[in-house]
Structure formats: structure tokens, C-alpha cells
């Protein structure tokens, strides 16, 4: 279970959450990370080539 304790050192979950505050916008750091990941996934899904797409087009 050593790797679990080192994981907990990198990502401590027992502390108070960190918040980013900018004018009216207040968001926790974890929620901001998830939002950024969702946007990145969305863009990747739009622009990354899908495996086998070219061969399917050629077959048609």
C-alpha cells in the first residue's frame, strides 16, 4: 500500500479546498481542473483522427 500513501502525499484530500476568486466568479481548483479537462477532451474529440476512418471512407 506504499504507492497509495505516496499518492495521498501528491494529492492531499484531507486539507481545505483551494478556491479561485475573480470578480463574481468563485470556483474550487478541483472543479476548474475538471472543467479544463472537459474542454480539452471536447477539442481532442473534434480534432484527433478516429482509427480506421480513412479505410472506411475508401471502402464506400
Amino acid at each position: 500500500m506504499g504507492w497509495l500513501s505516496s499518492f495521498a502525499t501528491i494529492f492531499p484530500l484531507n486539507n481545505l479546498g483551494h478556491y479561485l476568486h475573480w470578480h463574481f466568479l468563485l470556483i474550487s481548483r478541483s472543479n476548474l481542473i475538471v472543467t479544463i479537462l472537459m474542454v480539452a477532451t471536447f477539442l481532442a474529440a473534434l480534432f484527433l483522427p478516429f482509427p480506421g476512418r480513412r479505410s472506411r471512407k475508401e471502402n464506400q
Binding site: 471536447f42 474529440a45 473534434l46 484527433l48 478516429f50 472506411r56 471512407k57
Partner: peptide
């Protein structure tokens, strides 16, 4: 259809 071969259709 061919257009379904895109990552955006996976979600």
C-alpha cells in the same frame, strides 16, 4: 454511416 467514425460520437 461513415461520419460516425469520429471521437465526438463516442461520448
Amino acid at each position: 454511416p461513415t461520419y460516425v467514425a469520429s471521437w465526438i460520437y463516442v461520448f
